[in-house]
Computed example of a mutant assay.
Amino acid sequence: MKQYLLSIYQPEGGVPEPEVLARVMAELVDLRQELESTGAWVFGAGLHDPSTATVLRPQGGQVLVTDGPFAEGKEFLGGFTIVRAADLDAALSWGRRYALATGLPVEVRPFQGKAED
């Protein structure tokens, strides 16, 4: 089985209202339990706001350290999940579930290298 990264993108701005956030979190708990029960779960986590990021950029044999995200944008990586899936279609199925649960865009990308047995 190959591993896939499900990147969850969220817009800049505040967190949703408590009742909306509670519904999303409940759906994510159910989804994670299903992933675990099928053996597809590898790892996942939410990320802090992009303002907490530090970028290390090689420049002239040195490394320049800057605050903030690498790229400016209206959306940022808010969290991710790594899943095991037989193929891209199966990974996309999990990605669709995350998109529906969160109401946010989800990017699905395979890891390089050989598939796990």
Rank of each mutant, 00 (worst) to 15 (best):
V108I: 13
R84F: 05
G39Q: 02
E34G: 12
P69H: 04
A40K: 03
A26P: 03
A26F: 00
D67K: 14
R97H: 06
L21H: 11
E116C: 09
W94G: 05
D67Q: 10
D30S: 14
L92F: 07
R23D: 15
D67I: 08
E75Y: 09
F80L: 12
M1N: 09
A86R: 15
P18Q: 05
L31R: 07
V42I: 13
L31I: 13
V55R: 10
P11Y: 02
P110N: 01
L56V: 12
R109G: 06
L100K: 14
Q10A: 15
G68I: 06
E34T: 12
R23W: 03
T81I: 11
A26C: 07
A115C: 11
S37I: 08
F80S: 01
V63I: 15
L88T: 13
S93L: 09
A91D: 05
E107A: 11
T52Y: 05
G61C: 00
V63L: 11
V15K: 09
G79Q: 04
P110V: 10
W94F: 11
L5R: 01
G46P: 06
M1F: 13
E36P: 06
A45P: 04
G60Y: 02
V106C: 00
L31S: 02
T102F: 00
P105S: 07
G73D: 07
A71E: 13
A101T: 02
E36C: 08
V108Y: 02
P58G: 03
S93P: 07
S93K: 09
G68K: 02
H48R: 15
L100T: 14
A99D: 06
A91C: 07
W41N: 02
A71N: 11
V24S: 06
L77D: 00
F43H: 14
T52V: 12
L6D: 04
R23E: 15
Q62P: 04
A91T: 10
P58Y: 04
Q10C: 07
E107K: 04
E17Q: 11
T102C: 01
K74Q: 11
H48E: 15
P50G: 03
L5H: 03
L88Q: 12
E72G: 04
W41R: 04
V55P: 04
G60C: 08
G44Q: 02
D49R: 10
K74G: 01
V106K: 00
